[in-house]
Design a protein around this nucleic acid. Sequence first.
DNA 1: ATAGAAATAAGACTCATTCTCATTTTAGGC
DNA 2: GCCTAAAATGAGAATGAGTCTTATTTCTAT
Lengths: 124, 124
Amino acid sequence: MRMTRQRREILAVLSRTRSHPSAEEVLRQVRTTLPRVSLGSVYRNLKTLREAGLVREIVTAEGRRYDAVTAPHPHFVCERCSRVFDLARPLPPRALRRALPQGFAVSQIHLELRGTCSECGSQP
Amino acid sequence: MRMTRQRREILAVLSRTRSHPSAEEVLRQVRTTLPRVSLGSVYRNLKTLREAGLVREIVTAEGRRYDAVTAPHPHFVCERCSRVFDLARPLPPRALRRALPQGFAVSQIHLELRGTCSECGSQP
DNA sequence: ATAGAAATAAGACTCATTCTCATTTTAGGC
DNA sequence: GCCTAAAATGAGAATGAGTCTTATTTCTAT
């Protein structure tokens, strides 16, 4: 994978924030340094960087967000402002609830494991 | 909320399966009994039923799926065939891994808490 | 049975994401 | 440093899931 100016800048943007920006937000940031970057390139590069293990995609009900911290970790999604917060890893769900920052109220816990099922795993 | 034929049938479809169908799949099933139902009605009613607490929406990287079991519980998403499997509730992540059905391989664990953050919670 | 409110089917619309393609950039060998 | 083939880019078209609009139909409470 070529480390182009666009990719370097996308990574830089993601590295200097913990706000889990959307693709549009990444574009806005990247354009402050590289004004001609297209939205298509941002999407294409977020995918490439994700496949290279340098970026993590977080799918929430509010849309896809991006993160330069690739180790899987729990998130807290505010259902009002849609912001995504990181939580310390790894904690059992009960402790998680206690470990939440002051004033955060949980309405729903969603635990999703991803991988291959037995049927697909036994196929070539 | 009126319990119309369409809504009753959507609920029936979701109740008689554990396959977490997409809206399109629900439409296909519902049309075997009510052939004139529109996709718009399915979406509208899935939303209404969700707001009434009778249906749960599961957002995965592969799209939105629907479930008549509304209690939050962990899911296993097969990254190859996209099927969503239910897992027994509530288990700490470590035990979850052990509790997985034979032959299921986990590549990623995604824990998402939803609710309101402190900033939004302190606003009217 | 009827009227008013709510729900419906059909299709137009929106908007995030992906695709296409002509042009530009990059990295490696000279 | 220069050249070349492969890879990446920008621009805009295309896709597709989900939402909205509207005229018509169906409920349900009286």
